[in-house]
């Protein structure tokens, strides 16, 4: 039996759907102004204890020489600030895809939204657009304030660093799609997003070089593409020592991007079908 549809999907209709979702998310964000302010303040609050922890180790010395022995730069605050900004984009993908799915389940609009003639992956991805724009703006403000308070000295190749970030983020989307599938099954996002995002960020070396991790965590860190993304971006901006030759790290990032997007989309399609068959989409 062939399925007839009156919908005439095209790339323009998909684009309109993406923009509509992004606009709706932006309206939600602006509706709570205190949250908007805290999007800048929160990373500053998070980073300040790290600064003072660093000061504890450099008292009486000219620079963080211990830190420099690991990564090739004593400028630990610039190292951490780059990691912090990148980790915000990681959080955007995780919260944007996984948590927004749960929010729609709670609000009871997931089923009706999914009745629209748009691919589910497009709708999931679109939930991150507004968050990406907001993250970019707030992180720019955050970096200016952090540079003033703690110092930030990145003098390397910014274009190369941005080009390195792109495959890293796209690989994360694949991860996010697979993660959304788990949220559909477990019907609880908050704890899972919180734990997974924190673990991925920490194991990738947001605050420290991964060489300091205990032996039982190091293999996990080296298996994460993000580790090489963070490492390469810092190498371009700060001239730090890399874990692997830079060219290898870029090849790994591109390969991970292709594998993760394909795998993530496949897992999500399978799980979504199971949930529709079981009729559990509206449960929460």
């Amino acid at each position: 039996m062939s399925i007839m549809s009156l919908a005439q999907p095209s790339w323009q209709s998909y684009l309109r759907a993406i923009l509509a979702i992004a606009r709706k998310d932006l309206l939600h964000f602006l509706r709570y102004p205190l949250n908007a302010i805290f999007q800048v303040l929160h990373p500053l609050i998070w980073i300040t204890p790290v600064y003072f922890l660093g000061q504890t180790f450099v008292q009486g010395q000219q620079a963080a020489t211990g830190f420099a022995a690991y990564v090739g730069t004593a400028d630990y605050m610039s190292f951490i600030l780059i990691g912090t900004v990148l980790s915000h984009y990681v959080a955007t993908v995780f919260w944007g895809i996984g948590f927004s799915l749960k929010t729609e389940m709670d609000q009871g609009v997931l089923e009706s939204n999914w009745m629209t003639p748009n691919p589910r992956l497009l709708m999931l991805g679109a939930r991150t657009i507004a968050a990406f724009v907001i993250t970019t703006i707030t992180d720019a403000v955050f970096l200016v304030i952090a540079a003033w308070l703690f110092g930030f000295h990145a003098s390397g190749d910014v274009v190369a660093a941005v080009l390195t970030v792109l495959p890293t983020i796209l690989a994360l989307y694949g991860f996010g799609f697979a993660f959304a599938a788990i949220v559909l099954l477990m019907r609880d996002a908050n704890t899972m997003v919180d734990i997974t995002q924190f673990m991925v960020s920490q194991l990738s070396g947001t605050q420290y070089p991964v060489q300091v991790l205990p032996w039982w965590l190091l293999p996990l860190a080296l298996a994460l593409p993000l580790t090489y993304g963070f490492d390469a971006v810092r190498a371009f901006l700060l001239g730090t020592t890399t874990l692997l030759p830079l060219a290898w790290e870029l090849v790994i990032l591109v390969a991970f991007m292709i594998v993760m997007i394909t795998l993530g989309a496949w897992i999500f399609a399978r799980v979504e079908r199971i949930c529709r068959q079981r009729g559990t989409l509206s449960m929460h």
Partner: peptide, 8 residues
């Protein structure tokens, strides 16, 4: 881990 990295 940050402390360990700063310690060198």
């Amino acid at each position: 881990m940050t402390a360990r990295a700063l310690g060198g």
